[in-house]
Structure formats: C-alpha cells, structure tokens
Write a protein that binds this DNA or RNA. Structure first.
Lengths: 132, 132
DNA sequence: CCGTAGCCTCACATGCGTGTGAGGGTGAGG
DNA sequence: CCTCACCCTCACACGCATGTGAGGCTACGG
C-alpha cells in the first residue's frame, strides 16, 4: 500500500511515517515511480510504535525492542551482542517501572473518580466521603 | 528544606524543580532571603512527577491528576467541575492503554531475552557469562 | 490535454522537557 | 574581610516528535 493508505489506517501523518522510516523503525520499498510501498503488516507495527512513543520511549529504544516482536521469534538471535542484551534488559526493567508508576497513579485517579461520582451524583451520600 | 537538598534527594536538577513549580506542579514558600523552602512531602511528589513524565504524560495533565493523590482524600472534591471529571476519566483510560501497551511489549522483550539466554549460553557455562 | 490528487524531497517552525551559563545576592567559616 | 557554597532570575540552546508549506514529479479521469 502507499503512504496515504497507511497514514489513514494508522491515524499517523505522512510526515511521521517518513520520519519513522528515517529513524529506522519501519521500512518501505519503492515503486518504479518513486512512491513508497508498504507491506500490510506495517499497519500493526506503526500502531505499536505509536503506543510506545506515547508511553515515553524514544525512537532510539523502540528501534531496539522492535526486533523482539517479529513473529518468527526463533531465527534471529545470533545477532544479539552482549551489550545489546544488557540494554534490552535495562530497558525492560524501565518499562516495568513505568508500568508500576502508571498503575499506581491510574488506580488513584480511578479511586478519586469513584469517590466523587459516589458522593456527588446521588444527592450526596456522606459516608462515601469517609471511605479510605 | 532548600532546593539543593530536594534536588539531591530526588535526583532532579534545580532547574527542573523550578520548572515544575512554574508549571504549577509543586509549590514552595520563600525564606526571608528569597530562597525557596520546600516541605518534606515534596520529595515523594517530585518522584511521582518524574515517573509520570517519564511515562509520557505532559505537565499539563500531571497537574490535573496530582490533586487526586493527596492523603486527605476526603476534603477536596467540591471543586470538581464536570468537564474536569471527563478529562480525568479520559486520561485514566489513556493511562490504561499505555499500561496495556507497555505490558505487551515488555513481556515480548522479556520472552525474547529468555529465549536468547536459554538458547545461546548453555554451550559455555551459562552463569559465568551471566555474571554481572 | 488538462486538472487534480497523491506522492516526492527539503527545510523551516513549534512545543516541551531539559541543560548551561551569565550576572548577582546571602551567609557561614577561616 | 574574603571566600566559598548556596541561592536567585533570566535567557539562550538543544533534542525530539511533530506540523507546515514550498517546489516539483506522476498518473488517472473527464
């Protein structure tokens, strides 16, 4: 597919798709006329990239963790240098930290919302405010 | 405490502490000499801010969710305007999405690491090369 | 054949979190 | 008194993800 379709199907501007390519996150072949041509599976990959970017990972790191997500997981680990493995390990741990932080805060927000909607929507039920 | 101590205890540059204050994420009182003076509990708050920033939330949003995390959770929900509640709800859902995305990818990375270390090391004594 | 829609490259711009440094005050210790 | 370690404000700069637009090609439909 061409860039316009990929853009629409992923909700990502053409500009960004070219940027991701420039950063080595996705690849494209070129049609004879010079147009970029994308494989079907790039839709998922782009969505994944967007999710990770949104979660605070820089493209540099995303580029390193993306290869871990290809379906044929078996074949491609001869190229793993030890320092790359340690980077991955470190980054995995940082992801875990992020997850924990997000969960903590999301739960707090959620609890707050529950409390408010319990206390505000029905005529104000007082004992709800004493909860916790 | 003064900014230097807070900086050291949170691993955050003075510059950033002032920036967070400017963005309304933390507050400080001023000593007669003009020095900022911080409350003890700001240590935790700053760490929380850092975690959320690292997880991709902008200060604008962090500022809105921070009030949900004060210990005396009881007192301060009269100020909740309906549109602020919907913002919070939306943001909570976005956090959930982030969490799911991070978990998926972290698990994939983890599995990859497991596969590699299981497949690559057994030849030459594994725990030796794994020693860190 | 022309218009128009899609693609190309290139380059400048913006918002945000962060670094760095200049220029200057404060206050405790030798 | 002077030094040194802190603090202050202000302003410029950077990296990164993203927007915007200029200038120019391609190719299909009327």
């Amino acid at each position: 597919m061409r860039i316009g379709e990929l853009s629409e199907r992923t909700g990502t501007s053409r500009r960004l798709l070219r940027y991701y390519e420039e950063q080595g996150l996705i690849v494209s072949s070129r049609s004879p006329n010079g147009y970029r041509s994308y494989d079907e599976n790039l839709v998922d990959r782009v969505l994944q990239i967007r999710g990770l970017l949104d979660a605070g990972l820089p493209t540099r790191i995303i580029k390193q963790i993306l290869p871990c997500l290809n379906k044929p997981r078996v074949i491609h680990f001869p190229d793993a240098t030890p320092e790359m493995l340690s980077t991955l390990t470190l980054e995995r741990d940082r992801m875990t930290q992020r997850i924990e932080c997000l969960i903590r805060n999301r739960d707090a927000v959620s609890e707050y919302l529950d409390t408010v909607s319990a206390g505000a929507t029905p005529d104000r039920i007082p004992q709800a405010s004493a909860a916790r």
